[in-house]
Design a protein around this nucleic acid. Structure first.
Lengths: 337, 337
DNA sequence: CCTAATATTGGGAACGCTCCCAGATGTTTT
DNA sequence: AAAACATCTGGGAGCGTTCCCAATATTAGG
């Protein structure tokens, strides 16, 4: 069915050498006569020889591959992180394999199994909004394969993590809304299972408290991040007896969806209602009105995570470090507030 | 350094069985007593056993992995294609490895080598704007590894391809501009090396010709798709003695950049100048004014390409097919025209 | 020209697995 | 009760490499 692939044995036979010698040339080891070296190299080139990394990985127990698992790929957030991570990995001589968990626990588990089976040297992961059980991730620790979390982390595992200061970011956003005169600020929050949602919610509450404003639970809506649901919540909020004059959304896709819905309703942004998002996605500067948002150093998250992972890979299991890097956010004020 | 990974031999030893029997259980082969089967399964679970796909791939000469190489990942275009392709692949039991060539020929060549070395069962590729030499791709054919092109294809290779009707899409866009009264339509074209650029340019010219308008070479600017360069060309076009009243851009990122630049100059869109893009990227509906664009069935490109690749993988080399699927575009009229 | 180095090459185990071929044990048939 | 199966298990080769160690070839020193 498949064509025969050329191996070092083919080269060895054709040149009347042993596979050892051919291997020596191809791996750049010393102690091979120039004649032989050149002959081998030439023939290898001629035959389109490519080393078989499966065999090499099998022997060396190292594949120079890192896995990246992200919950979704539809906003620009995760793709940007992946790009940055991949760049660092490539630089360090690692290949990357990545997969989406589609925000589904089962898929995430399946993905980790695949990565394990394919002998990745380490993984980078941002968990799904559903993930409550971490056994599939703890396996990596047990097997001595480094794991680094970013963005959505697992609290109970003592491994490197890269996050942003969600609390502070949210605090600053809400504090700014208050300072600019908003009286009733709603929060479209993410699921409580995610630490980032919880932290942003805390930041929101804290800013209200600090400014002596009441925390109206009616104005806090926690949802599962499915953008299609935003419409329901916006309708609900606007139909309240005492509707909000500002909305702080847990992320940019949510905020952007909100803007579109609110515009369609004929309300003015920011006059009637102000909106702030979180992350500074690519689209947030394009939409009209442009979105005020808490910017994350997205690329830095990816590159830092990859960096930490590679360092961990190069360390012996016995002295693994478990640093948590907390990156700063920055409030970017645009026209939606 | 690395912890010992549990193998079927570990399981065999612990249960006083041979590795053959353990293997038989794990691969689901018949002829194993229920007692043995259960014991093996239980122990495997307990020890977090994971099959080593390197070893299996080495034996079976199949990795159930397909590679995807795209030129860039910064607009939403390629990510969406990759998502769709990955979905089909996953469905069919294939893993995906992907990498960006960063629009650089050397990187593309390096990427193909890595994929070859990692024994992918097939690849999906959209070439860089620089790629003129196709030797690195022809190797796949020689080795009997299927290759499928999408979007940016290689004319001289007789393999499956998935493209959209760029000519027609461009024609319709320009024809529509003319019908709506535009007299001087500029074209921000892509590099001539890419078939898609050439086809879109042809569609543009053809629409002018059909409507008895002159083709003014001054209004045709071919550039390398680096969005940062757009400013120069817009400035140039607007400073012409007889500036254009419409711009047809080769893709959406270009059109979106143009909109921002033109807005900043204080010109009104579409009153002073109309803009049309190509692809219907995610952002094109968000920007103000929203972008009129030639929509491509993006997901369909990815899924079709993956489909074709998998079919090819399942065929014997001797009866490889080389179909070219041409998908239809659709002009989406929004506010920029 | 012979010995001792040194330079170059070959042989073979090992990596973890699958799969074919044989044994070993048990069961049914006449 | 012997012959003929069926069921289950073990042994071993092989996938393409690397790497250690031994073998051979080449060269230098005396």
């Amino acid at each position: 069915m498949k064509k025969h692939q050329v191996t070092i044995i083919d080269i060895a036979k054709e040149l009347n050498l042993s596979k050892s010698t051919v291997s020596r040339v191809l791996t750049g080891h010393a102690n091979v006569s120039i004649k032989t070296r050149e002959a081998v190299l030439e023939l290898a080139e001629k035959l389109d020889y490519q080393k078989n990394m499966l065999a090499i990985g099998l022997i060396s127990k190292k594949t120079n591959t890192i896995g990246i698992i992200v919950p979704e790929f539809s906003s620009s957030y995760f793709p940007q992180i992946v790009i940055a991570a991949q760049e660092v990995a490539t630089q360090a001589g690692y290949n990357t394999v990545f997969s989406q968990s589609n925000e589904t626990y089962e898929t995430e588990v399946a993905n980790t199994k695949v990565m394990l089976a394919n002998q990745v040297d380490g993984i980078l992961i941002s968990i799904t909004r559903e993930t409550r059980n971490y056994d599939h991730l703890k396996v990596f620790e047990r097997k001595g394969i480094p794991i680094v979390f970013f963005n959505r982390v697992c609290d109970e595992m003592k491994v490197p993590k890269v996050i942003v200061d969600d609390f502070e970011g949210a605090f600053n956003a809400v504090d700014y809304l208050i300072k600019s005169g908003r009286k009733r600020i709603a929060h479209l929050a993410g699921p409580a299972s995610l630490k980032i949602s919880a932290n942003r919610l805390e930041g929101y509450k804290s800013a209200l408290r600090k400014n002596n404003m009441v925390i109206d639970e009616e104005l806090i809506i926690s949802y599962n991040l499915e953008v299609s649901k935003v419409k329901i919540y916006i309708n609900h909020l606007l139909s309240l007896e005492n509707p909000p004059d500002a909305i702080f959304a847990v992320n940019d896709p949510t905020a952007i969806e909100a803007i579109q819905i609110i515009k369609k309703k004929g309300l003015r942004i920011p006059e009637d209602i102000a909106i702030i998002g979180f992350s500074n996605d690519y689209a947030s500067d394009l939409i009209a009105p442009s979105l005020t948002t808490v910017a994350q150093p997205i690329s830095e998250i990816g590159s830092t995570a990859a960096q930490l992972l590679i360092e961990q890979i190069n360390r012996d299991v016995s002295d693994w470090k478990a640093v948590t890097k907390v990156l700063k956010t920055e409030l970017i004020i645009r026209n939606s507030s």
